[in-house]
Structures are given as structure tokens and as C-alpha cells.
Design a protein around this nucleic acid. Sequence first.
DNA 1: TAGGCCATCTGGTCCT
DNA 2: AGGACCAGATGGCCTA
Length: 422
Amino acid sequence: MAPASDVPTIWLGIRAGCHSASLQSGKRIASVPDHRQPRIFLLVSRKRELKPEDELDAGIAMLTRLFKEPSVLSDMQKFGVWVDDSGSEDSKTKDEDPEHCRLGDEDLDEDSIKGEGSRAQSDIGGEEDFDEDLDEEGCGDEGDGDRPKKRGPKKRKMTVARIERSKVRRQKANARERTRMHDLNSALDNLRKVVPCYSKTQKLSKIETLRLAKNYIWALSEILRNGKRPDVVSYVQTLCKGLSQPTTNLVAGCLQLNSRNFLTEQCHEGVRFHAPTPSFSIHSYPYQCSRLSSTHCQPGSNPHSVRNHSFCSAYETYNEGTSPDYNSAEYESRNSPPVCVNGNFGVRQQEPLSPDEERGYHYSMHYTNLPSARSSAAHALAFGPPGSRGAMHSQNPPAFPDAYMHHDRDPAYDELNAFYHK
DNA sequence: TAGGCCATCTGGTCCT
DNA sequence: AGGACCAGATGGCCTA
């Protein structure tokens, strides 16, 4: 059987016997007559001359099919792959030993494919170049005793099947990476739900979530360490350290804090966090508010003029001059506080939770507007009775209607609660 | 339009 | 070899 004369070919530079050794069908791609003897030629298109560069993918795909599905041999024949059961002497002697001439994934060389393709039709019958390729593939090491072996690590060439496997491996790795990132994002979502501020519509960014969580842990640890209630201003300021202005505003909205009280209080009294260690004093807020100047904090300034700006200048007015940068590595790498307690001093939840959210809060408790002994106790716990200094006010509309504070039902909170009721 | 945030892809490294 | 992890690159989306 001979290929149709109008069939152009792509020369793949692969010894036929090598392929036949792996063909489970038992058929042998070999015995291409005369000068084509040692090679197979794969045909992709019958009607036009192939440009190997253009059609290489098609050829690779077909060869891949061939390796995996011997049944496509008939298709290969149809498209010009020479299939012959008789085989040549060369093939008989070298190719019937699968161990000697392993075929398969490793043996089809992309480089040789391209190289052979580029010189297709031009060096038909040339043996030397082809044998070199075979040697590198470990498939034609017969009769090379005279040739010096190449030194250095044997470079494994990219074969067709190896390319395919690499693609598959890459796709699997991508899928794993996606899954991993989704898991990470899920964990971040869970973290968003347990930090003091949560909004469905204005989700904290990843970095802000982490910063707020760190501040939150720190603030609670300080509370435990000192055994004192912080004033609300200090508490909020601690929470907002290093946060961006939008996040600070969001926290303000969550806390339902009267910005007038907040601002005037800090302007008049300064801001202190009741911590025994100087390292926890309030420092300058790294994010400057361009819209709110410090004059807004002057006594007698119109409080309503700053309401919409929430806390953006909260820290601006308390600059100790030698403030650390809370975004700096020093601050970020500060040692963890000695105690980590999950709980907060939230007082309000605007909307009932959906079932999904409830599942997300499986161990959390959310304070609502409904009077409850516990929420009242929690409110008093954190900031004292209504009307006292530092108490939170709720007469202001929240900046983020769906944002709310929440409270974990973590046992640690009960400990904290008990501690405060000693 | 610039900048922030994010998802995804990708290659490198380390470990099993 | 393959999986986990990481960081850089890239492009999309959104907002000021």
C-alpha cells in the first residue's frame, strides 16, 4: 500500500520501529518503501502542502491519539500514515524488543518534530541526522559504540506526550491553586464575620480584614491584661489602627458611635489607651483625611460638619511626633499579644441573618435591637451604662445600614464577662 | 484614567 | 512525580 501521491507529509523524524514496538494493536508502522524506510510520515492534510509550523498541533494531536488509541490506525492510514504488517529487517531486529526501544510518551521529540518538519521533503533518505535524534531519545542506541557519548546531564526533550502530560499537569495544578485560593478566601470570609465589623455590602478587603483582626485581638488582650474597660474612643482607635479611611468609617458605622462625641472627646482629652506599656499608646493615624482638617476638632466647631467624615481624622489630632508607622514592618511584626480572646462589644445588628449567615455564625451571637439581658450586659460590660463617659450612642444613623457588630459566643467571652462582673 | 482589589495563571521551590 | 505553597504577572472590574 502506498500513500496517495497527492498526500503531503510531515516528517516527524521518528523511527517507525520505535512506534511499532508500542502499538498494542500489533501493527507496525514501518516498511515505508525505499528511501523512506526508517521513518514514518504523518499526514494531516491531503489537499495542500503542509507547513509544519502551522500544522504541528494537528500532527501532535494525531500522534497522541495514535499512541493512546491503536484503533485509529485505520484513520492514520487514511490520512497517509504508512502502516505495514510486514516490517523491514531493520524494524524486526530493533523494534520487537519493547525494552530496547521503548515507545510512548517519551519518544516523540518535539524538537525533532519541528526540525524534521522544517526539513521535510528536503533530506528524505538522510540517515545520519535522524540517527542522532534517535540516540538522544534512547531509542536508537544500537550501533553507536564508536560514537562518543555526550557529556553532562541528559536533557530530556519535550515529547508530544510529555507536552500533553505537562498541559494536563498544569491544568490540574491550576485547579488546585484555584481551590486553595478559594479555601483561603473562605477562611477570610469567616474571619470577616468574627472581627468586630461586618457588612454584606461593603466587604472588607483581605488586607483590611487581617489588620482589623490583628487590632481586635490586640485590643481584647490589652483589656484582659489591664483588667480595665477601655473607653470607647480608645477601643475604636485601637481597632482602626493602620486601617484605611473607608474601613475606619465602616468600623465607625458598625459601632454606631457618635462622631461628635468621639471627635470632641479626643480633642479635649487626648486619646489614651489604658495600657501599662508605652508601646500601646495611641500614635498618629497613618491615613490622612484630606477632607477633614483638624479645625473640625476645635471646641465649638460644628459637629454635624464632620459627621459624614466619621473617624477619618480620629488619629490625626493625636500625633506624638515619634509615631511608628502602623503599616511598617515593625508594627506588623509586633509580637502577638499574650492572650487572644475572641469577643467584642457590639451592640447592634440591623438585619436578621439569613440561614446561610447563621450557619456562618455557628458559634457567634449577634446583638440586636431587641432588649436582652445579655446584650445589655455586654453593652454595659464594654462601655458602661448608657450616658456614662464613652458610652456608645445610637442616635446617629449608621454609615453602613447593613453593617453591624457581632459577638462571639466563644467561652472565652464568658470568661471575660465574668471577669468584668467580679 | 489611575489606582485598588481581585481572580487566575504560571513557574519556582520544597517536601513527601 | 506530584502536591503544597509562594510570588510575580496579567487582565478584569470598580471607583474616585
